[in-house]
């Protein structure tokens, strides 16, 4: 079958030890049997490895941070559109999603499509709204307190661990008031308030990567058990698992929220075998290439949704497929670095 030629822009090219999803998304798209993609990388920083990976990215452009405002981002995308006929953008950086959601209509006017949740869905799944969400949806969620200042969390247990989480990133397991206050200040300085304090659930970590069609239907879901976790809490190895309950949770989540687009559920299986939802990431996770290898190419399905096709739901995935992440020292010519840093594009 002849593959359809399209141009897809992808962010999150920071394939480092705490990786963005961009490179895995692109690898999945490269394997598509439906599309022949020209890939445009969008990078915030000069050393995001994806910029220099020629077999991954056809061309890369620097874009302004979300903290510069949506207007700045939109202007830059308009500029890029003068050179590239972008069909789809897949944003992969948590902090930028809000801006892309806000820009959805204006991007559409440029002929650029995105597949993202609504502002309401995006807000509801925020860490600081998760307990309410859990109550309404019947999904088990650890107890949590949303704090705008250290004083908002008064009863810090002296001996039981708790989790302190930032609004966008970072989570620390701490014990006792002193540690709590230290990490609270650290997170508040970096990501602002609110800071979320959560009951610590001890157990094995499972993630589910999924895709919702926006009408309450689950199109894809692949559960993974983390087999090795780095000091940053990221999976360095993982394996697809067959526990039906994980897929059912994803179904329930999508049904409750009418979620549109990709998502990742982070779950902990407590000692007594119950799954607690600890976080919902409103985007494709960094380990997405595993889902592709297991038979569900979620990035390709996202592109199909973006282009207005109605992909049907994946029916199965291969259980026991494993990924082991590795790092690789790539040689970059100084000219390439100089060009990207001076001109903001490769």
């Amino acid at each position: 079958m002849k593959r359809k030629k399209i141009t897809v822009a992808v962010t999150g090219l920071n394939a480092i030890d705490n990786p963005g999803s961009g490179v895995s998304v692109i690898r999945s798209l490269r394997e598509s049997e439906l599309f022949e993609c020209r890939i445009v990388g969008l990078a915030y920083e000069l050393l995001e490895p994806g910029i220099y990976m020629k077999e991954i990215v056809d061309c890369a452009y620097q874009v302004p941070y979300p903290s510069a405002g949506t207007e700045a981002l939109f202007q830059r995308i308009e500029q890029i559109c003068e050179e590239e006929k972008l069909d789809v953008i897949i944003p992969n950086f948590d902090a930028e999603l809000y801006s892309y959601i806000k820009l959805e209509r204006r991007l559409d006017n440029l002929g650029v499509k995105v597949v993202l949740p609504t502002v309401q869905q995006f807000e509801e799944r925020h860490k600081y709204n998760l307990s309410d969400f859990g109550k309404r949806s019947g999904i088990l969620v650890p107890e949590s307190v949303v704090c705008n200042s250290i004083g908002d969390f008064k009863d810090c247990p002296a001996d039981k661990p708790i989790v302190v989480k930032g609004k966008f990133y970072d989570a620390f397991v701490v014990t006792g008031r002193e540690q709590f206050e230290y990490h609270f200040s650290k997170i508040a300085t970096k990501w602002g308030v609110p800071v979320i304090v959560q009951q610590f659930v001890d157990g094995a970590e499972f993630n589910v990567a999924g895709l919702g069609d926006g009408n309450g239907n689950l199109l894809a879901a692949v559960p993974m058990s983390k087999r090795f976790i780095t000091d940053k809490g990221k999976a360095w190895a993982g394996v697809t698992v067959g526990d039906r309950r994980l897929v059912e949770l994803a179904e329930l989540f999508v049904k409750q929220t009418n979620w549109r687009g990709a998502f990742e559920l982070e779950l902990i299986k407590s000692k007594d075998g119950r799954f607690f939802l600890i976080e919902v990431n409103p985007r494709i996770p960094a380990w997405i290439y595993l889902t592709t290898a297991a038979g569900q190419n979620i990035p390709e399905a996202v592109v199909r949704m973006a282009l207005g096709e109605n992909p049907c739901a994946f029916e199965s995935y291969e259980v026991g497929k494993m990924f082991v992440r590795y790092s690789w020292d790539m040689i970059v010519e100084q000219d390439e670095f100089a060009k990207f840093s001076m001109e903001g594009r490769t």
């Binding site: 963005g20 920083e45 995001e48 941070y65 950086f93 990133y169």
Partner: peptide, 16 residues
């Protein structure tokens, strides 16, 4: 100076 870091909450180049 050209400083390179990874995406995070750093300053923005101005497009004002």
């Amino acid at each position: 100076p050209i400083n390179a870091t990874m995406p995070g909450k750093s300053g923005t180049d101005a497009y004002i």
